[in-house]
Write a protein that binds this DNA or RNA. Structure first.
Lengths: 108, 108
DNA sequence: TCAGAATAGTCCTTGACGGGAATATGTCGT
DNA sequence: ACGACATATTCCCGTCAAGGACTATTCTGA
């Protein structure tokens, strides 16, 4: 569901965590140190982000690597695409370009 | 701020209102009827959406037309673009295309 | 100016959320 | 098995936001 992802990103600290994870998977303590947050709250926020699918965990020794997941972000992006006509004057032109790209794709 | 828009869209009913407004500006009562909500809550949600800039009002007789605003949506879209590499294999190719488009733009 | 329609605001209650502090679980090295 | 480290969970509390019901405002038409 799109709006649950929005809700998760609506919290300032979770938003920061997501931005922090953009540069790659990180263990909890990196987030704690990088964003100056307390460890328990980071774990709690990560739990929420995991529940909505925005991140996934993968154990690495005694630490857990949290990594952004493509699917929900792609979903949000697609949702916003449906509103593109509201601001993008080149909307139609852009559409054509995308079609061209996809056509090229099929040739490979 | 991007995360305030996310917060506003995180509420299920506000999300529905935004989707409902995608087809164009509408008076409050249309939203009330279309989404089966009570009028006061719709007004309250619209107030929130207005505060974060997602909608704007324009009086029309005794009713007020609420309309989606491009700026915040474009902002969200741009924010998500920065995460595109996470899911879009054609990311680099797409980047080139965008550059080309912007180059053409300057020529006009 | 009065009635009625469209919308906004207020008061209240309730449930959810975030933060802090302390504690629990789990894992590694020795 | 033990100690140290990394992370998760629990409890408590204060705050905030959403919905319901009611009321207030503003505009229109007669």
């Amino acid at each position: 569901m799109t709006h649950t992802s929005f809700a998760a990103l609506g919290d300032p600290n979770r938003f920061r965590i997501v931005e922090f994870l953009r540069s790659g998977a990180k263990p909890v303590n990196d987030i704690v140190a990088g964003l100056q947050l307390n460890q328990p709250q980071v774990s709690k926020h990560l739990k929420v982000l995991k529940e909505v699918g925005l991140v996934d965990v993968q154990p690495r020794g005694q630490q857990r690597l949290y990594e952004l997941q493509a699917a929900p972000l792609r979903e949000l992006h697609e949702w916003l695409e449906r509103y593109r006509q509201l601001w993008d004057a080149r909307f139609d032109a852009m559409d054509e370009v995308i079609d061209e790209l996809q056509a090229k794709e099929k040739c490979t």
